[in-house]
Nucleic acid binder design. Sequence first.
DNA 1: AGACGCTCCTGCATGC
DNA 2: TGCATGCAGGAGCGTC
Length: 325
Amino acid sequence: MPELPEVETVRAGLEAHVVGRTIASARVGGARAARRSLGGARHLEEGLAGAHVAAAVRRGKFVWLTLADADGTDGATGTGAAPHPAPDVDRSALLFHLGMSGQLLVRGAPDAVDLPQPRHLAARLSFTDGGVLDFVDQRTFGYLALDPLVPTADGGPGGDAGSGTAGPEVPAQVAHIARDLLDPTLDLAALVRRFRLRRTTIKRALLDQTLASGVGNIYADEALWRAKVHPERALAGMAPATVRRVLERAAEVMRQALVQGGTSFDALYVNVNGASGYFDRSLAVYGQQGRPCPRCEARIARLVFANRSSHVCPRCQRAPSPTPR
DNA sequence: AGACGCTCCTGCATGC
DNA sequence: TGCATGCAGGAGCGTC
């Protein structure tokens, strides 16, 4: 499952291999992959044709390519005589969410037309230099969208409720997503305060992308284990230092995973390094039920709540008392 | 507003 | 052997 480290690895791959190129044409497999794109697949295809890729940007688990009109000539390639004017792509981004199984594959083949279509191909971008970017998604939770860029409210230091506050602009669909835990401008103290206002459990809050983004089920479990905090503990009344420790451990484990993810992609393959990738050797609790805790050797347990699984060491992570008050 | 259950989807593991 | 069932999960959405 791609979480922040995996998506950042993808972003770096896009930056290295896609930024600076110009899209000749795009083919979007079906309505589902384009379900979040205004106007649907056709509009997406029309808008992308001729667009220049200016940058690869990420927030949390969202990654996008900022686009610019490839100066002058509209209808750069033969998408046929488009009856509608091509959408203005200048203030837009091509947004990707990888969902559970999305992959972006960069192909250098000089003749894209002859490339075999991978199973579960959701979209294919062909560049003017002959290369190809494939979006492959087995479980179809992922999507791509042509989305207008909107300014983000920048709270800066002291801005309180300002969950957002990233770079100057983000795709409209990302506007409500908070800065992620590896964002250098993240205000950790303010985040701790926001967490402690929530009337829910620490794990639910960790997974809430409007509080802090990038953490998914795997790294949430790992962070809580490292911090020795039970996932079902209520935030209300939790010591600020404890909340802070959890957030710091989450950042730490994602940073470590990123180092490993970053080494695992080569020139032509933008890797999605999920649980089945390299970092799984380093997982202490996720998917380790029945195995000994690396710290104390108690058996790792798997809990289910909110229709999701959590993995804990029953000795290191003390369960909350069954009836608070 | 915030909290939370439900839903989308496919491949694989498990069970009978 | 073959079919049915369950499970995995991000995040939008509806409901209270």
